[in-house]
Computed example of a mutant assay.
Amino acid sequence: MSTLEKKIDFVAFVSVTMANGNGDPLNGNRPRTDYNGFGEISDVCIKRKIRNRMQDLGHKIFVQSEYRSDDGFGSLSERASSVMKNIKDRDLYTKMACETWMDVRTFGQVFAFKDTKGVSCGVRGPVSIHQAISISPVEIESMQITKSVNGEKKDKGESIASDRMGMKHFVRFGLYKIKGSINTQLAEKTGFSYEDAQVVKECLRTMFINDASAARPDGSMEVVKLYWFEHNSKDGQYSSAKIHRSVSAVLKPDVMVPSSIEDYDISVEPLEGLHVEEMEGI
C-alpha cells in the first residue's frame, strides 16, 4: 500500500428519474427538499451507498446494513468486540480498527460501546462528502397505492383493512451535484492509502449498482459524470471550494423545466497546473 501523498477533490453529477433518491422519514418518506424546492441527498445516504459498493468489491466494512451483514453480527459493538476484544490501549484500538475496516479509515468512526471495557475513541476519516443538492428545483409527485391483500385482519365494519392503502413519492427528474475531498494529513493517521482512494473513486463511479428497490428501480438513478482532481502536493494547489465551483451544470437557455441530462450544459473551468480526470458513471 502506498501512502497518499496528494490531496484529492472530486465532483459527481447524479440524475434521478421517477425515483425517490433519499426519502425523509419525518415527512412521510417524501424525497428531501429545501424550502426553495431544491432536492437534497444526505451525505449519510451517499456514504451508505459507497460502503455497500466497498462491500461488493470484497472489502471489510464496519458499518454494515442489517440486511447486508456478511459476518453474522447484529450490532456495531459485537463487530468491534470480535476484533478488539480485551484491548485497552486507545491508540492500539484505533490502529486495529483502521487496519481492519476500510470504511473506518475512509470516513472515520466513533467507538463508544458498553462492552469495550472503558475504551472509547473517535477516528476522523480523510474522506469528507457534502450533501448533494439538485441544480434546479425538483418536482415531486405522489401516488396513492394499494395492496392486493390485507396485511392485518380488518376491523369490524371495515370493507378493507387500513394498511391496504399507502403513498409512493418520487422525483420526476433531478440532477444532483455531489462534492467531496480527501485530506492527506488525516489519511496518514488512519492509514488510508492511494489504493484506497482508487477504490473510493470506483465506488463513486458505480454507486448505484446493486442499489435497486421499489423506490429506486434499476436505471432510475445514474452517476452521469465523475470529475477527479489529484493535486501535486499534500495541501493542494487550490482550495476545495474553488475546485468544486470550477465544475458547473447550467440549464440550457431554451429549457424551462428540465426532464433529462440533455437539458444541461456541464463544464469544467480549467485551473492552471491541475489535471482533472473525467469519467462516465454507471
Rank of each mutant, 00 (worst) to 15 (best):
F10E: 00
V11R: 06
V16G: 07
A19R: 05
G23H: 07
L26K: 10
G28A: 11
G28N: 10
N29A: 10
R30Y: 09
R30L: 09
P31Q: 06
N36T: 04
F38R: 04
F38D: 00
E40N: 03
E40W: 01
V44E: 04
K47V: 03
I50Y: 00
I50L: 01
D56Y: 14
L57G: 10
K60C: 12
S65W: 14
G72M: 05
F73W: 11
G74Q: 04
L76G: 05
R79T: 04
A80T: 14
A80Y: 10
S81N: 13
V83S: 08
K85H: 12
I87Y: 00
K88F: 06
D89N: 09
D91C: 07
L92H: 09
Y93A: 14
T94K: 15
T94I: 13
A97G: 11
A97K: 06
C98T: 09
C98K: 03
E99P: 05
T100I: 06
T100V: 05
W101T: 04
D103E: 11
T106V: 10
T106P: 13
V110M: 14
V110Y: 08
V110G: 06
F111K: 08
A112P: 02
T116Y: 10
K117S: 15
G118E: 11
S120A: 15
G122E: 08
P126V: 04
V127W: 00
I129R: 02
H130L: 07
S134R: 05
S136H: 13
V138P: 01
I145G: 12
N150T: 06
G151L: 14
K154R: 15
K156F: 10
G157Q: 02
G157S: 04
E158A: 11
S159M: 08
S159L: 09
A161F: 04
S162Q: 05
D163T: 05
R164K: 07
M165H: 13
G166N: 11
M167C: 11
G174V: 07
K179S: 12
G180K: 02
I182S: 02
L186P: 01
T190R: 06
G191E: 09
Y194D: 08
E195I: 02
E195Y: 06
D196Y: 04
Q198I: 11
V199D: 12
E202Q: 15
E202K: 15
L204A: 06
T206L: 12
I209G: 00
N210F: 01
N210W: 01
P217T: 02
D218H: 08
G219H: 05
V224T: 02
Y227G: 00
F229K: 04
H231F: 06
H231V: 12
K234P: 11
S240F: 04
A241I: 12
K242G: 01
K242R: 04
S246A: 10
S246E: 03
S246Q: 03
V247P: 09
S248D: 12
P253G: 13
P258A: 11
D265K: 08
S267K: 06
P270C: 02
P270K: 00
L271H: 03
E272S: 05
E272P: 01
L274W: 06
I282A: 13
